[in-house]
């Protein structure tokens, strides 16, 4: 009798476990669940950050209402080696501000086009379910503001970009950024988080010091610069990202393109976890991960040995000749068990 009860309980447990797995794997069901989530309270202005920084994690908070403010601008800045370029941006930086949400959050996105802009701009967020990812709803001529509201349904790391015609030119000039939607309960806590976004630039000289977009090079997919965070050296020298021995580092890596697929690699490290393509499937022990144009990945690794770790697009001419190079500086005690110069002592 007891034995019979034990077997049937076990069976029931299996069935329940089976159901549970099915539920969390089925995207349709989880999106329905997200739609049903209630975002309580009054809308707050969301914290957004410039690369390489990210806003604070969502943790275990309930879904909320947010206002996200982005301004589109056309602004001259340094691209490389004293050369200037007229970037088109979200919030005056390439990449645009990092937006961090959780599943079930409701966002009222305000897209203001600066009054001194020459062109109309808009935003297509890959995290949005709905027509154009918001592009149609947000098209703003210079001086105007456009607003649309969306609910975050699917967890993941997503690209956003301008989709105003001519789209390739808007993206090529730097109009992209990342939006993270954390699952319920948040991503696992780590010690360090950074925001890195690759993009390539197609240029011709307008004056000695000012470069401008070259449509032909864009069409031929032949960039002069392949950069992290919109500027050569943005993660080098005093701009290196940092961690201490023993810490776990999480990089939110996006690729704005407009054309190239990135072969993202950190020299001297192995990714313990890769959220492939920014989605839910986690791969382990990865050397180099592909980041498509208009896509992203989350990579995590624990740093065990001090030193400077070089971040590259391992399509390697881009790293050494076109600027796709950055550094992570790890400080702390040596661990000779893991790595040392020279052979065994005699």
């Amino acid at each position: 009798m007891t034995y019979k009860l034990f077997v049937s309980s076990l069976l029931l447990a299996f069935i329940i476990a089976g159901c549970k797995t099915n539920t969390s794997d089925s995207q349709g069901v989880s999106a329905d669940k997200a739609i049903a989530m209630v975002a309580e309270g009054k809308a707050e202005v969301a914290e957004v950050t410039e690369a390489p920084n990210v806003p604070k994690p969502v943790g275990d908070r309930a879904p909320k209402k947010f206002i996200v403010n982005l301004e589109t601008t056309e602004t001259v800045g340094e691209i490389a080696d004293g050369k200037q370029y007229t970037f088109w941006t979200f919030n005056n930086h390439v990449p645009g501000s990092f937006i961090r949400l959780r599943v079930g959050d409701e966002v009222e996105l305000h897209l203001k086009n600066a009054a001194n802009s020459v062109l109309p701009h808009n935003i297509d967020l890959h995290a949005v379910t709905g027509p154009g990812g918001g592009a149609e709803a947000t098209t703003a001529v210079p001086g105007q503001e456009a607003v649309f509201t969306f609910k975050a349904l699917n967890p993941g790391l997503y690209v956003y970009h301008c989709a105003a015609p001519p789209v390739p030119m808007h993206i090529a000039n730097g109009m992209y950024g990342l939006i993270l939607v954390e699952p319920e309960g948040g991503l696992k806590k780590v010690d360090r988080e950074y925001y890195i976004m690759q993009g390539e630039f197609y240029t011709k000289a307008k004056t000695d010091s000012l470069l401008e977009f070259d449509n032909d090079k864009g069409n031929e997919e032949n960039p002069d610069y392949v950069l992290f965070n919109g500027k050569k050296g943005s993660l080098l020298g005093k701009n290196m990202i940092e961690a201490k021995v023993g810490e776990t580092v999480r990089l939110f890596v996006g690729n704005g393109g407009p054309n190239l697929v990135s072969s993202f690699h950190v020299i001297g490290e192995i990714f313990d976890n890769v959220y492939t393509e920014g989605g839910t499937v986690v791969n382990h022990n990865v050397q180099t991960t592909i980041i498509p144009s208009g896509g992203a990945a989350i990579v995590e690794f624990k740093v065990d040995v001090p030193g400077e770790y070089v971040l590259v697009d391992h399509s390697i001419f881009r790293a050494f000749n076109k600027g796709a190079i950055g550094k992570l500086k790890v400080t702390g005690n040596e661990n000779e068990k893991v790595f040392k110069k020279g052979g065994a002592k005699k």
């Binding site: 009054a115 001194n116 062109l119 109309p120 098209t139 703003a140 001529v141 210079p142 001086g143 105007q144 105003a164 015609p165 001519p166 030119m169 449509n215």
Partner: peptide, 20 residues
């Protein structure tokens, strides 16, 4: 691309908009 820009501009306009 120049024509794309013009049509994009027009698509963003309403009859009471005033732009710099």
């Amino acid at each position: 691309y120049a024509a794309f820009m013009r049509f994009s501009m027009r698509a963003g306009l309403k009859a009471n908009y005033t732009v710099n």
